[in-house]
Design a protein around this nucleic acid. Structure first.
Lengths: 209, 209
DNA sequence: TAGATTGTTAATCGATTAACAATC
DNA sequence: TAGATTGTTAATCGATTAACAATC
C-alpha cells in the first residue's frame, strides 16, 4: 500500500521536472530536486523507489525519462474527461482553469439545475440539465465528476454521478460524501486550509502576549 | 507541537457541530461526531484533549460550547480581512465565495496588474493596482493575502505582500514560495488532488488487467 | 582512482488505535 | 446500580530520516 503522502508528492516532482526540462537540464539529482521543492533528497529517493529504479547511481535521474515515468504512474496519459456539476462562481472558474489542460485533463461538460444557465455556454462548454445526468455523462464520455454545488446538494449529485457510471469524483463541497469504495473520491475543502491558516496566525499572536 | 493532521480536522469538527446545533441537538458524543465524519471517536477525543477537557464523562460534549471553543482555537473570532491578488477566474470566484463569510473571513480588497481591471469592482470589492500594494494593505487593514496569479508571478507577489506587512498567505499558485518563517503560509494546490485522483483511477483500471 | 549519487536497510520519530480507569 | 462516555496511558502502526553499500 502506497501512502497518500507519497502520492501527493508525485505531482510536485512531475511539475518541477517539467520546469527543469524547459531549462534544458538533462539530468537532476535528488539533492537538487529536493532543494527546489523543500523536500529532503532521502524522501524523494524513497518515494521514487516505491515504483521502481529510475535513477543511475553516481549520476542522478534523467529528467525527461523520470518525468514520463511519473506521468504514467499518475495516469496522466489517460487524458481524463471532466464534467463540472454546479456552474456557480467556483464551477465557472474551474471550467476556465488552464492548468488542468497542461496535465491532460479536459472539461467536456457542465451541468446545473438553473434554467437560465442550461443551454448557455461557459468557455465554449455547454451547460446541461442535471436531470439528464446519465445521458450527458455517456454522450460526452465523462470520466470524472467535479462537484461544485452547495453542501446540502452534494450527496444527491454524487449519487447521480455514481448511478451514471462515473469513474472518479473531485468534490469541492464542504461535506462528507458517501460513495461506493471502488469510486475514487478526492475532497478539495478550501475552508480547511483557510481555517488552518487562521489557527497559525492566532498562535503567532498568542506568542506575543 | 500540535500535528498538522489534528489542525486540519478541527474545521471538520467545527462545521459538523454547527450543523448539529442547527438540528437543536444540545449534546453529542465522540461516537456520533465520528459517525458523521468517518473519523474514529478515539481520534476525535485525542484531538480535542490536545487543547483541554471539553467533555463530560458519561455524557458527551455540549454542542454549543465545544463549537465556541473550536472557533476560538482556530482563531475564527479574529474576523480576518483578506486581499486577493490576481483577479482572474479563480480570484474572481474566491471574491464571490460565500462560505468564507460564515467562517468570519471577509474579502476587503482585490489587486491586479491589468489596467482594464483596476478601478472596476468585483462583487462590490474594488480592484486596486498591485503597484500600490503597501498602501492598499494598510488602507483596508488586510491580514491575509490570497495569491491567485500565475505560478511565475507568485513569488514576486509574495515578496510584495510580506514587505507590506501581511500576517498570513493563502497561496493558490502551483509553486513553492519562500517567505519568512514567521509568516504562516498555506498552499492550496488544486493539481495535487486532481493528479492523485487520476492515480487512484488508474490503479483501479490496473487491477482489471 | 576519488567523488557523487542512487537504492535499500535500519533506526527513529510521530500519529493512530486500543485499552481502561474515572465518573457522570 | 448499570450503562455510557470521556480523558489518558500504553501499544501499535506507519512514515520519515539516517546510514551505507553499490556503482557510475
Amino acid at each position: 500500500m502506497i501512502s497518500q503522502a507519497t502520492i501527493d508528492r508525485l505531482p510536485l516532482y512531475f511539475r518541477t521536472l517539467r520546469l527543469v526540462e524547459d531549462e534544458k537540464i538533462p539530468i537532476i539529482s535528488s539533492d537538487e530536486l529536493g532543494r527546489r521543492l523543500d523536500i529532503t533528497p532521502e524522501q524523494i529517493r524513497k518515494d521514487l523507489a516505491t515504483f521502481g529504479q529510475f535513477g543511475r547511481k553516481g549520476i542522478g535521474y534523467d529528467v525527461r525519462e523520470l518525468k514520463e515515468k511519473l506521468a504514467n504512474i499518475l495516469g496522466l496519459q489517460n487524458n481524463w474527461r471532466l464534467a463540472i456539476v454546479g456552474v456557480g462562481h467556483l464551477g465557472g472558474a474551474l471550467a476556465n482553469y488552464v492548468n488542468f489542460a497542461s496535465l491532460g485533463f479536459s472539461v467536456v461538460a457542465l451541468l446545473d439545475i438553473n434554467k437560465n444557465l442550461i443551454g448557455t455556454k461557459v468557455n465554449d462548454i455547454p451547460v446541461n440539465n442535471v436531470a439528464n445526468m446519465k445521458s450527458v455523462i455517456r454522450k460526452y464520455n465523462v470520466d470524472i465528476g467535479v462537484i461544485t454545488v452547495p453542501a446540502d446538494e452534494a450527496q444527491g449529485v454524487a449519487d447521480l454521478l455514481v448511478a451514471a457510471g462515473i469513474k472518479g469524483i473531485w468534490n469541492f463541497a464542504p461535506t462528507k460524501l458517501s460513495v461506493p469504495a471502488e469510486i475514487p473520491l478526492v475532497n478539495e475543502d478550501l475552508s480547511i486550509g483557510l481555517s488552518a491558516l487562521s489557527y497559525y496566525m492566532s498562535q503567532d499572536l498568542t506568542e506575543v502576549y
